[in-house]
């Protein structure tokens, strides 16, 4: 089951879904808006959230930036971090988790801090994405620092099969390059520099002619 989950996060073959047995603990107090006077918030986290609030002066638009800030602080959207963000935003923590769990890039469990997303969508899988994911899993699957997961189309089907290593897009990745890439990920080195999307010229021949 865990294996299936890795292929596409929060998607399981079976009939049980995450949270299937989540009951309320009746000993707990209700999760109302945390009181600013009694909720301690790390300085950087507060600063990041307050900056977002300034940039999006209306409504709850600062939610997503605030959740990114929580994730940067704790490595995941921990309940503690969510409560702190809720205190700064003056909203309930539930309002924040509702949003956090909607999006694929927020982690609701502590996972490796290095995120490696391997696209397994149509264009990539037409040219071997599933094998790529399997090969990377072989290399990095057990590494606690790495959050390796299959992902939907990352908008880089021109470099299929591809992966996003902490936001850096690389591809097309050949199976033979997997050990090297895995090593770079483990070491925190620049992943496959020659294969980074950012360096790739436009495919349209008219561009080169200009």
């Amino acid at each position: 089951m865990a294996d299936v989950q890795r292929h596409v996060a929060r998607f399981t073959h079976g009939s049980r879904i995450p949270g299937w047995d989540r009951a309320a603990d009746l000993e707990k107090e209700p999760a109302v808006v945390p009181d600013a006077a009694t909720t301690e918030v790390p300085g950087e986290l507060r600063a990041a959230i307050e900056d977002a609030v300034r940039r999006f002066p209306v409504g709850d638009s600062a939610f997503i930036p605030a959740l990114y800030a929580v994730q940067a602080q704790y490595g995941w959207c921990s309940p503690e971090g969510i409560e702190q963000a809720a205190a700064v935003l003056g909203r309930t923590p539930a309002a924040l988790t509702a949003v956090a769990t909607f999006y694929d890039m927020f982690e609701m469990e502590p996972l490796g801090r290095k995120s490696v997303y391997v696209c397994t969508n149509i264009s990539c899988s037409l040219v071997g994405a599933d094998q790529l994911l399997a090969a990377l899993e072989e290399e990095l699957g057990e590494d606690p620092d790495v959050n390796l997961r299959g992902f939907e189309c990352l908008g880089a089907c021109d470099i299929a099969p591809m992966a996003s290593v902490d936001g850096v897009y690389v591809g097309p990745i050949e199976l033979g390059e997997v050990p090297e890439l895995a090593n770079q990920i483990r070491q925190g080195d620049d992943p496959l520099p020659a294969k980074q999307l950012i360096r790739r010229p436009c495919a349209d021949p008219k561009v080169a002619e200009q």
Partner: peptide, 27 residues
């Protein structure tokens, strides 16, 4: 002009889902 970043949800490309997401809601 401000840049807002999504967080991984295809449905936020649908224009009204995008608006909800931009307003800090589920998209």
């Amino acid at each position: 002009l401000e840049l807002a970043r999504g967080a991984g949800a295809y449905i936020c490309g649908e224009e009204t889902g995008l608006l909800d997401s931009l307003e800090g809601k589920r998209g």
